[in-house]
Every structure is written in structure tokens, then in C-alpha cells.
């Protein structure tokens, strides 16, 4: 039973991380109908920036809690800045181009950012310090769930609530929803669609950065390649839940997290990544709109 519970919570943690990344995919897709291939890289850059800040501040002898907060904030700022810039360079000039062009551009951006970090830093795995102290009250349950996992779950929950608030109740949130329904119409009623798209990229990148820092701290090491697989899986989660739908992305992430956790726990860990892909193929064949997605009607 403990093993089951461990896998269950492990899946939940995994799912939370996927959710933080999947949100960015789903929000961007909701508005410009583009798979932002570089999104995984934004997450990786968040983790790297955090590691760099942590290393510098540790040498300066700051205390851990302060480091955690500062590194988190800077990572979020930088990831957002990267997300914003990527959109301006690689996607904005292609707003009216065929989808295939934007997609290829996105792949190029992903390739570029990976190699940028690889060349500027290193191809080796770097140890990432565990910044979350072990909570004492958690000790009896330590074999089932760690403190870091608790922090991940809580942070994800908070981010979700904030995001829901942003989209449901703020002006920019309304503009985002309007733009995702109909870009031209939104423009006609005076919404600055370019700004909405920028904000979407910034918000998506920020949540990805939070995910990046959390998982790096959980796994304990990072390299330039972590964004790619995590990005793909988060994308799978977003599609599973119904791309364009925010609750869908969260639901899809948890389902994927659990599937992977149980499949690797009870079946085999060799084929961990295969499960995600098989999942994706099956969903796309049988229910392309995902669990909570709106069915897309092709206008003729």
C-alpha cells in the first residue's frame, strides 16, 4: 500500500511539474494556434538561470531561504524575457504565414536555445542544490513523500489559483479569452492583440520557469537537454487534456504523471518515455480534441 501511495504521490508531483509547463503550451496554442516548440527550452533556461544565481549567491555567503527566493524571482524574470523575445523574433513575423512555417521556425528556436546554453555553459550534468529544507513534521512520512514534493504541490496549487484569477477576472485575462475566440474580432473591438500575445508568452514562460526551478531542485541535476523531453511530455499532457483548455492541461498533466509513475513502478522503467508517446498517439487517433477540449470544426 505504501508503495502504491508513493507512486501515487510521485505521479502527482510529476503531474504538477508537467502542468506548470503544459499551461504555457495550452495558453499559446489557445491564442495563436502554434505549438511553441521552444517552450521546453524556456523552462530549461529558467532552471539554468536559477542555478547560476544560486552559485553566485552561495559564494557570497547568503542564507538559503533568501537564495531560494531571489533565484526563483530572477529565473521567472529571465524566462519571461526569453519567452517574450522568442515570440518577437521567431513567431511574430510569421503571424500570417502558413502553419508549417511557424512550426519550423519554432523548432529552429528550440534547437538554437539548446545549443546556446550548451556552448555558453557546458554539456555536462550540473548538480542542482536541494534548496528545500527537510520539514521536521514530515519525518514519519519521509519514505512516501519528501519535503520538496510538498513544496512542488503547494506551489503548483498557488500558481493555478493565481492563473485562474488572472484569466477569469482581470482585463488582460478577458482580452486573452477574447483573442483566443477570434483574433480578428478582438482586434476590431480594440484589443491590442500583439500585446495580448506577448503577455501570454510572458505568463506561460513564468510558470514554466517555476516548474524548471522546482524540478531541478527535486531531481538534483540539470543540463541543456532537460527542456526537450519535459517539453514534449508537457505538450502531450496539454493535448490529452484538450489543447487550449487550461483546466484540461492540468487534468492531462496529472493523468500523464500517474500513468508514468505507475507504469514505471509496476511495469518497467526502460520504456518510460514510450508511454507518453503511445498515449499521445492514442489520444490523437481516438479523441483529437482531448478530454476537455472544444471540438474544432473546420470551417468550409
Amino acid at each position: 500500500m505504501d508503495y502504491f501511495l508513493e507512486l501515487f504521490l510521485g505521479g502527482l508531483t510529476r503531474g504538477s511539474i508537467y502542468a506548470l509547463i503544459a499551461l504555457g503550451y495550452t495558453m499559446v496554442y489557445g491564442i495563436i494556434e502554434l505549438i511553441n516548440f521552444a517552450h521546453g527550452e524556456i523552462y530549461m533556461i529558467g532552471a539554468f538561470t536559477a542555478l547560476i544565481v544560486i552559485s553566485v549567491l552561495t559564494l557570497m555567503g547568503m542564507n538559503t531561504v533568501a537564495i531560494l527566493v531571489i533565484a526563483g524571482v530572477i529565473a521567472v524574470i529571465y524566462s519571461s524575457a526569453y519567452g517574450y523575445t522568442v515570440e518577437k523574433i521567431a513567431y511574430k513575423p510569421l503571424r500570417n504565414a502558413p502553419r508549417l512555417s511557424a512550426l519550423i521556425s519554432a523548432i529552429g528556436m528550440s534547437l538554437f536555445l539548446q545549443n546556446y546554453v550548451l556552448l555558453a555553459q557546458t554539456s555536462d550534468f550540473l548538480p542542482f542544490p536541494n534548496l528545500v529544507p527537510d520539514f521536521e513534521f514530515m519525518e514519519p512520512y519521509a519514505h512516501i513523500i519528501g519535503s520538496t514534493e510538498i513544496v512542488i504541490l503547494l506551489t503548483t496549487a498557488v500558481v493555478m489559483v493565481l492563473l485562474t484569477f488572472l484569466i477569469k477576472f482581470t482585463t488582460i485575462g478577458k482580452a486573452m479569452r477574447a483573442a483566443s475566440q477570434d483574433k480578428t474580432m478582438a482586434m476590431l473591438v480594440g484589443i491590442n492583440v500583439n500585446r495580448v500575445i506577448s503577455v501570454t508568452f510572458v505568463v506561460g514562460s513564468a510558470t514554466a520557469a517555476i516548474g524548471g526551478v522546482l524540478i531541478a531542485s527535486h531531481v538534483g541535476m540539470i543540463n541543456f537537454y532537460i527542456g526537450f523531453i519535459a517539453g514534449i511530455k508537457a505538450f502531450v499532457a496539454a493535448v490529452l487534456g484538450g489543447i487550449g483548455s487550461i483546466p484540461g492541461a492540468v487534468l492531462g498533466s496529472f493523468i500523464l504523471g500517474w500513468t508514468e509513475s505507475f507504469a514505471t513502478g509496476y511495469v518497467s522503467s526502460d520504456y518510460e518515455d514510450v508511454f507518453a508517446f503511445l498515449f499521445l498517439v492514442l489520444i490523437l487517433i481516438f479523441r483529437p480534441s482531448g478530454i476537455l477540449g472544444r471540438t474544432e470544426k473546420n470551417k468550409v
Binding site: L100, I232, V239, V281, P288
Partner: peptide, 28 residues
């Protein structure tokens, strides 16, 4: 066959997955 009905962007991801699955199988 499985990707016949897919739109362009989904197709890209599924074929990417297919490529990776083949590689992972060869590896394991």
C-alpha cells in the same frame, strides 16, 4: 495510417514520438 487524420502540428509531434519510440526500442 494512424496519423492520416491529424493536422499539421499534431503530425509533427506524433512523428517525432514515432522516431523516438523506434530509437528507444533499439536501445532497450
Amino acid at each position: 495510417f494512424p496519423v492520416l487524420r491529424l493536422r499539421g502540428d499534431y503530425l509533427a509531434i506524433v512523428t517525432l514520438g514515432f522516431g523516438e519510440i523506434i530509437r528507444i526500442i533499439l536501445e532497450n
